[in-house]
Amino acid sequence: MLTIDFRYLPLKAGDHVLDLGCGEGRHAINIYLQDAVTVLAIDLSHKDISVAREKFLPFENKDDLQRQLFFQVANGTQLPFADNTFDSIVCSEVLEHVENYLAILQEIRRILKPGGQLSVSVPRQWPEKMCWWLSDAYHQVEGGHIRIFNAKKLRQQVEDCGFLFSNQHWAHALHTPYWWLRCLFWKNQDNNRLIKIWHRLLVWDLMEKPWLTRWLERGLNPVLGKSVVMYFRADAKGVNS
């Protein structure tokens, strides 16, 4: 399930791309498959990096040396990369988990080349507020969400770090009711019939991509999309120029 739309984050052969907070590798693997690029996927979780490596194995082409994907455990607030290293950076569904997210944005700006591309996604404000209202456990679980973002404020904070805004959209409208149901029936969600049915729908949609659910989600995303996705370019003139 991809959150980033690569029509708004075009890649080209030879690019160096960072997936910051890669989780189990969904975006990193997709980037690897798109073009002859070098991808570095990092996460703070050793477990997630291990899972991501396992998921990547069926897709790895060791004969194609122009297309590479590396995994590494790293802290987003202290990235172990030189200035101006990457052509593009993806930071999807990460900042809501991090205490000092502004430090991550500043590190991204440091390691992104002037004119380089950045895509950031976070949970959308009003669907996320509903989740918090329905269940305290949803946002109190270890490693869970510690804040609710206002998209306009976050956009301004990213721009203040030296970025130029280029585009925005919403994603995963069909996932919003699913998470509301999970929050509503949090204590018994594993045995809830309605949640199981909705989960099967989401898996079917992911695997088959039927026109009906694709059309439905596109129509609902502006209203019900669970994530807000924003795209930027690093200002070649520098921060606050």
Rank of each mutant, 00 (worst) to 15 (best):
R53A: 07
R53T: 09
K55C: 12
L57W: 01
P58H: 05
F59M: 08
E60L: 13
E60N: 14
D63L: 13
L65W: 07
L65Q: 11
Q68N: 06
F71E: 00
Q72L: 13
Q72E: 03
V73Q: 12
N75H: 14
L79D: 02
P80V: 04
P80C: 08
F81Y: 15
A82E: 11
D83P: 01
T85H: 14
T85V: 00
I89L: 05
C91F: 01
S92I: 01
E93T: 05
E96P: 02
V98N: 02
V98G: 01
N100S: 13
L102D: 14
I104W: 15
L105R: 10
L105V: 08
L105E: 04
E107W: 02
E107D: 08
E107H: 07
E107F: 03
I108W: 11
I108Y: 06
R109K: 12
R110G: 06
L112Y: 03
K113S: 07
Q117V: 09
L118T: 04
S119G: 14
S119K: 09
V120H: 09
V120F: 08
S121D: 00
V122S: 02
P123L: 06
W126D: 13
P127H: 09
E128F: 00
E128Q: 15
C131Q: 12
H139Y: 00
V141M: 12
E142R: 03
E142M: 11
F149E: 09
A151G: 03
A151Y: 12
K152H: 07
K152Q: 10
K153G: 00
K153P: 10
L154C: 06
R155L: 05
R155M: 06
R155H: 07
R155F: 05
Q157H: 08
E159Q: 12
D160N: 14
D160I: 01
D160K: 14
G162S: 04
S166L: 00
N167G: 07
N167P: 07
Q168L: 09
W170I: 05
H172W: 01
H172L: 10
A173M: 04
